[in-house]
C-alpha cells in the first residue's frame, strides 16, 4: 500500500477493443512514479494514442484499472472529468494553438477555464512564458512564430495551471533537430521542478540522448520497460 502511493499513474491489466472490433491494447500493465520522466515509444498503430486517450479519459478501457494519483479513474463522474484533466497538461505535435488570438491569450485560456482572476492570469502567464523564453512574444500571433516557438507556447499553456503530469504527444514531430532538442531540454527542466513528464515519440535521437525510462508498445502489447533505455523498440 505504501509503495502504491508514490505512483502517480498505474495501468493494471488494461485492454481496449474499439467498437469496430479493433484490439488496440492487450493486457498492458505499468506504473509511473511521481516526478518520473518516461518515454513511450512504438510504431504507428501500436496503441500509443489509445494510451493517451485512456489517460485523458477520452475513452474507457474494455477491462483493467487505471489509477491516477491513487484514484481509480473509472470512478470519476462525467461532470468531474474537467477537474481531472486540469492535473494533466498536454502538448501535441501540431501545437493546437488558436490562430485568432495572441500568445498571451492562448496561454491564458487554460487559466480562464478555471475562472482565475485577471491579476493572477497576468502573473502566471508572464511567469510561464518567461520560463519557456517567450516573454517578448507576449502579444504576437502564433502564426508569426517558428515551429519551435509555437511548441513553446503550447508547452506554456500546458504548464500554466501547474499540472502534476505533463503529457507530450510527439512534441518534436514537426521540429528541426535544434528546436527538437531545445524542447526536450525544456521538458527535462519541467521534470526537474517536480512534474511527472510522459513523452510519446518517434524520435530515436532524443530518446537515445535523454537516457530516461522507456516503455515500448507494439501491436497493443507492452514489449519493453527499461529504466534508462534507448529508442530501438524494434529490438524488443
Amino acid at each position: 500500500m505504501q509503495d502504491n502511493e508514490e505512483y502517480i499513474i498505474e495501468f493494471k491489466n488494461i485492454s481496449k477493443t474499439y467498437s469496430e472490433g479493433v484490439d488496440a491494447l492487450d493486457d498492458i500493465s505499468f506504473s509511473i512514479k511521481k516526478g518520473e520522466f518516461v518515454f513511450i515509444v512504438g510504431p504507428s498503430g501500436s496503441g500509443k494514442s489509445t494510451l493517451i486517450k485512456l489517460l485523458l479519459k477520452e475513452i474507457e478501457p474494455t477491462s483493467g484499472t487505471i489509477k491516477v494519483s491513487g484514484k481509480d479513474s473509472s470512478k470519476i463522474k462525467r461532470r468531474n472529468i474537467p477537474k481531472y484533466r486540469r492535473n494533466i497538461g498536454v502538448v501535441f505535435q501540431d501545437f493546437r494553438l488558436l490562430g485568432d488570438r495572441s500568445v498571451f491569450e492562448n496561454v491564458a485560456l487554460a487559466q480562464r477555464v478555471i475562472g482565475a482572476p485577471k491579476w493572477r492570469i497576468e502573473k502566471n502567464v508572464a511567469s510561464v512564458l518567461s520560463m519557456v523564453g517567450l516573454t517578448e512574444k507576449l502579444m504576437t500571433n502564433p502564426n508569426e512564430l517558428s515551429g519551435g516557438e509555437q511548441q513553446r507556447v503550447a508547452l506554456a499553456r500546458a504548464l500554466v495551471n501547474r499540472p502534476g503530469i505533463l503529457l507530450a504527444d510527439e512534441p518534436t514531430g514537426n521540429l528541426d533537430p535544434k528546436n527538437a532538442w531545445s524542447i526536450m531540454e525544456l521538458l527535462d527542466e519541467v521534470n526537474k521542478l517536480g512534474t511527472t513528464v510522459i513523452v510519446v515519440t518517434h524520435n530515436p535521437e532524443v530518446v537515445d540522448m535523454m537516457q530516461k525510462r522507456v516503455i515500448a508498445v507494439n501491436a497493443g502489447k507492452l514489449t519493453h520497460d527499461e529504466s534508462k533505455g534507448g529508442y530501438a523498440y524494434e529490438r524488443y
Binding site: 486540469r86 485560456l109 487554460a110
Partner: peptide
C-alpha cells in the same frame, strides 16, 4: 471545433 477541443483538453467544464 478546434477551439472546443483545446478547451476540453485544458479542463474546461461543459
Amino acid at each position: 471545433k478546434e477551439e472546443i477541443g483545446i478547451m476540453k483538453l485544458v479542463g474546461a467544464t461543459d
